[in-house]
Design a protein around this nucleic acid. Structure first.
Lengths: 255, 255
DNA sequence: GATGACTACATGTATGTACAAGTTTGATGA
DNA sequence: TCATCAAACTTGTACATACATGTAGTCATC
């Protein structure tokens, strides 16, 4: 009975619940159908239903507990891995026209700190990109990307004014499976200030990202600086569920 | 055979793996024992083992896939719900001595914007706290907390210079089950600057938090501003797993 | 009317089984 | 030697069952 591209059951159930919640069919505070009802509705066993519930729980959409009915929490914005790694993708979802003005693309030997942040030997070639990103033609963010040559060669062969580097890398078969972000604040330096059209020292939201393959190899090290009144991060955590998020004290100049 | 306080099996397995990873027994890149081995080691069935694995996966500690052995990812800091909601708790875990200098505690009718952020009618009584927080006696963060009276009365009866308000609320039986954080950057205003001993306009990392009960009632609305060289946020996301994190464009003055 | 025991019913945990769908390994054969 | 294929792993998905444990409602009793 396995059709070729049938969605997995737990996936289908999760998708149903997610869209039902997002479209307001189940409102915050409402009780979700019980597991028993869902097993009947989807002609499934408890396993897939519970797996779907677990997914939604880690997304922060629902809350459940022994004896209690599962309830819908506040409708929180959640984005998929792809949405959150690509500025272009993100804008597209938010009905914003993304733009970019590439300042430069270079290939050069890594100086010490950059080599360390990419975990490669000093002097190894690195491809770097420096772009201004725009939302609906308004300057929003400055983006500094660094790739080891193995990955960067795809970037060199790409017109960085034409759109999403991330999408290009995926298309080229680069395996991006995990990212780690460090968020803090920093004042705009002269480059930032000029591009974003704000005074030097203006507080910016800095997101330093490192991307890894599923084997754990470092693929990308980036530094994005947003105008804080144009974009902000939101995250949800639920008691009992581990948060995958940490507040860390910065002893030295990490990264 | 149920002893009273025996840890759940999946919890015990997860705890074992977590500490083994954290202590370097399994290093990044290493393969974890297979599910079969773990079931033998813990005299358990596959269910609890897989549940533990799932937990670690959403924590960002491991990566797995069909046919592939499960591997340890980069050792990422992960904090529990409790660690991340309480400054005191967080410092304690990092071997830092937390401190606080309460500036004022008030009870007053909520003005419009505060009422909106707490989702209560204008003029309803609100308890507010304004504290400077210190790490090892060094100013680190200014904290503005707001509670509806129902919760805030516990705060009024508490010596806010003595430690963790969060812990006190828990002890008083307040049910805190979910939080939503919005992170951005902002320049220090005069109050911030004076307390943190920096010039006005210094970029600060602002974390606005809202806490909810499991029923979805809003309990707390806070605004923490960190010196960015003292603390930063880190978060991990893995492809396939939903991220519970979102980058949002700020159209208006939300929250 | 309030209290408390009891009874459904909810979700959480655990076991066992079976198969699906990838990856790795090694034997086989040209 | 090298390519190919099959077997033996791996983790993912699904089903059936049982019991633990907490919640909420019913209903008799005080």
């Amino acid at each position: 009975m396995t059709q070729q591209h049938t969605r997995q059951q737990h996936d289908e159930i999760a998708h149903y619940l997610r869209t039902a919640i997002r479209e307001g069919y189940f409102q915050p505070g409402d009780e979700l159908p019980s597991e028993a009802e869902l097993t009947r509705k989807f002609t499934s066993s408890r396993g897939p239903v519970r797996q779907a519930m677990s997914t939604l729980r880690t997304e922060g959409l629902i809350s459940s507990g022994r004896g209690r009915r599962t309830v819908v929490l506040d409708n929180v914005p959640t984005q998929s891995f792809d949405d959150i790694i690509s500025f272009s993708q993100w804008c597209h979802n938010a009905d914003i026209v993304p733009g970019q003005r590439t300042q430069w693309v270079t290939r050069r030997p890594a100086e010490k700190s950059l080599a360390a942040s990419l975990r490669i030997p000093d002097g190894d070639p690195v491809v770097s990109v420096f772009r201004l990103r725009l939302m609906d033609d308004v300057p929003t963010m400055v983006e500094r990307l660094n790739y080891p040559l193995e990955v960067g060669r795809h970037v060199l062969a790409f017109d960085t004014d034409s759109g999403s580097i991330y999408q290009e890398l995926i298309d080229q078969g680069v395996d991006i499976s995990r990212t780690s972000r460090t968020i803090d604040a920093i004042g705009a330096n002269e480059d930032d200030a000029a591009l974003l059209e704000v005074p030097v020292g203006t507080p910016l939201l800095r997101v330093r990202r490192r991307a890894f393959t599923s084997a754990g190899e470092l693929i990308e090290s980036s530094d994005d600086r947003y105008l804080p009144w144009k974009a902000s991060f939101t995250m949800n955590s639920t008691r009992g569920n581990p948060s995958s998020m940490a507040l860390t004290s910065t002893h030295l100049g990490d990264i």
